[in-house]
Design a protein around this nucleic acid. Structure first.
Lengths: 124, 124
DNA sequence: GGAAGTACGCACCTTCTGGTAAGTACGGAC
DNA sequence: GTCCGTACTTACCAGAAGGTGCGTACTTCC
C-alpha cells in the first residue's frame, strides 16, 4: 500500500526496533564512524585520530553497537600489544552510503539553511 | 579531493552547523514529521494524530526548528479558532526523500539486523 | 627505567532530551 | 454553562547521552 503509511505506522511502536537502529546509526559518532570506515579499514586508535574529538569510551561504545547490529566487522589479531581492525560488512557498506549521501546533502545545503535562519530571524 | 575527507573534516568542527542541522532532522520526531509531510499538507492537530505518540510540546518544537531551517513552511490563516497548515518547502522535500530512503532501508533490513544481534549474542 | 602506545572497561558527573501537566483565548456543540 | 477542540507556551522533572579520568597488561623507544 502506501509506503509512507507503513513506515510511519511501524515507526512508533513503543518497542520499534527500527528507531533503535536509527539511533545507533545517527548517534553523534555513529555517522562519522560509518563514513570513515567507508574509506578503508581502520585500527582503533587510528580511527580515533581520524574522527576528531571522539572520546575513547564513546568510540568503543559506538563500534560495539555497530558491530552488534552487523554493520561493522571487528577483527582481533590477538597479539600482545593489542591489535584490532575495524571494517564495514557488506550491509554496513550499503548503510554507510545512505548515511554519507544524507551527510553530503546537508553539507552542500548548509549555506542555504543558514540563509533561511537569517530570513526567519528578520521576519519573526 | 576525497569527498569523505571533506565531509569528515568539516563534521567535527566544534561549531559544525551541519551536525546541528542533522540533529534537527534526525531527532526523535523530526524524521517522522518530515516523512508525514511528504504525504501531504497537515494541520497541527492532524499531524499530531498522524505521528502517533508525539507530545504537543515536542511537535511544536520540532516544527519550529524545521521551519527555521527552511525545510517546513508554516501557514497561519489567522482565523479565530486557530488554523495553521504545515507543508514542506522544495528544499525540505529533497531532504525528506533522503530521510525516507534511509528510513525505508532500515525498515527493510531490520530483520537482518535482529538476526545479526542474535548471532553476536551467541558468539560472544 | 621511565614514557608512550595499544585497546579498551569502569565509575562518576554534567548536560541535554524529552515527557507531563497546566494555562491561554476563543468558538461551537449540547 | 460546561465541555471539547484548536494551536500553542511555560514550568518542572526524570532518564539517558555523553565527557573525564583512571586502571590494565604488555611492548617498544629513548
Amino acid at each position: 500500500m502506501a509506503k509512507h503509511t507503513d513506515l510511519l505506522g511501524d515507526s512508533y511502536a513503543p518497542d520499534c526496533p527500527g528507531r533503535e537502529i536509527l539511533d545507533h546509526v545517527m548517534s553523534k559518532w555513529g555517522m562519522l564512524v560509518l563514513i570513515a570506515l567507508l574509506e578503508r579499514t581502520y585500527r582503533y586508535a587510528e580511527l580515533r585520530r581520524r574522527v576528531g574529538g571522539v572520546s575513547e569510551k564513546m568510540l568503543a561504545q559506538t563500534l560495539r553497537t555497530l558491530e552488534e547490529d552487523g554493520f561493522v566487522l571487528r577483527r582481533d589479531f590477538g597479539e600482545v600489544p593489542p591489535r584490532v581492525e575495524y571494517s564495514l560488512t557488506p550491509m554496513g557498506r550499503q548503510l554507510a552510503k545512505h548515511v554519507e549521501a544524507l551527510g553530503m546533502w546537508i553539507a552542500t545545503h548548509t549555506p542555504r539553511v543558514l540563509a533561511a535562519r537569517e530570513k526567519y530571524r528578520q521576519a519573526g
